[in-house]
Amino acid sequence: MPPLSPLAVVAALRSAGCVFAEDEAELILATARTPDELAAMVDRRATGVPLELVLGWAEFHGLRVLVEPGVFVPRRRTEFLVDQALAHVPDARVVVDLCCGSGAVGAALATALGPVELHAADVDPAAVRCARRNIAAFGGHAHAGDLFDALPDQLRGRVDILAANVPYVPTGEVGLLPTEARDHEPLTALDGGADGLDILRRVADAAPDWLAPGGCLLVETSERQLTAAVEAFTRTGLSTHVAVSHDLYANVVVGVRVSGE
């Protein structure tokens, strides 16, 4: 079988319903090392595997982040969470990426901040393995476990940036997600409970014990969940506000531990 031509790759992707077939074809052609690998990658993408999992990486905040099967693919909108963290604590020295998935947020923060003590944690062992690869260059530590239970106790009261990309899709709406997410990403990274805020509330409740004075907790959520998410933050004593990017359709709740509390 002769190698697939660029035009044939584009045609195959377009017929499979890929909206950005030309762009995706260019990335696949640049990544495939052999004709057989090219054919396999095109076939996987045509059957609905997310492009990032086909390539083995995702572009995030200027980085090429490794992604593996079964691991949540970082979204471009989450770059706004990274930007908000950097704006609030530009001199952070202790960073935690909670519900880390691939570790993309932690890697992006470490890249921008310079030398930091970086920790990433997730309940999913596959995510922890993937994150460990992505944060190794920064001397980062990846931990497996349920939220704060995964973290070393020595971090209590020392965390400058606590970025938690928690699942926030209501259980009853998981089935409405795009097929790529439903079929190829772990349910634990998507399902946020009855109203989508179960994990967010748990994180907000415990965060003050882990934050340094002036440290901030940042969580992404949907527009319709903002009021309830802000309430979850403020009841724990965090000074709270909302940041919104209309361009990225991103909503981030930011809670700061006031100095002296």
Rank of each mutant, 00 (worst) to 15 (best):
G157A: 09
G215K: 01
P178H: 07
I135L: 05
L147K: 06
R202M: 03
P152I: 02
P178K: 06
L200G: 08
L176V: 12
V244S: 12
P178M: 10
V128H: 03
V174K: 04
N134M: 05
L218N: 05
E223T: 13
L187I: 12
L151W: 07
D191K: 07
S222H: 14
A250C: 00
W210G: 03
Q225I: 08
G214P: 02
R257Q: 06
L162W: 06
H141G: 14
R129E: 14
P170H: 03
V252H: 01
P186K: 07
I199G: 13
P186I: 05
A232Y: 05
G255H: 02
A150L: 09
G237V: 08
F233I: 09
N165G: 13
Y249I: 06
L147N: 06
R235S: 03
T240D: 08
H246T: 13
G192E: 02
G215H: 00
V242F: 11
Y249R: 14
T221H: 10
H143V: 00
A204W: 03
A181P: 11
L187K: 14
R129G: 12
D205F: 14
A150V: 00
D153S: 15
Y249T: 12
R156I: 05
D191H: 05
A181F: 12
C216Y: 07
H143T: 01
V256G: 13
A137T: 02
H184N: 00
V252N: 06
V242P: 07
L197A: 00
P186R: 03
A163V: 12
L200M: 09
H143K: 00
L211N: 02
H141Q: 14
A144S: 13
A229P: 06
D209I: 05
F148A: 08
L155D: 03
D153C: 15
F138S: 00
P208K: 09
G214F: 04
L226Y: 11
V242G: 03
R156P: 08
D191L: 05
T221M: 06
G196P: 07
G196W: 03
Y249H: 13
G192P: 09
A163Q: 12
I135A: 00
F138W: 06
E223I: 13
R156Y: 04
L211F: 01
N134P: 04
T179A: 15
N251Y: 15
D146A: 00
H246F: 11
E223D: 10
A127L: 12
R257T: 05
G196A: 08
R158I: 02
A137I: 01
G172H: 10
L226G: 09
S245C: 07
A207R: 09
T227V: 05
V253R: 11
T221A: 00
L187W: 08
R202H: 02
A150Q: 11
A127W: 15
H241K: 11
D146L: 08
V174N: 07
G145H: 01
A164G: 02
D247V: 11
G139T: 10
A206G: 04
R224M: 08
R182N: 10
F233G: 00
L176N: 15
E223V: 10
T234F: 09
L190Y: 14
V254Q: 11
A189S: 13
G215A: 06
R158S: 04
R132A: 13
E173C: 04
A243S: 00
T188G: 14
A229N: 06
A127G: 10
W210V: 04
F138K: 01
P167S: 01
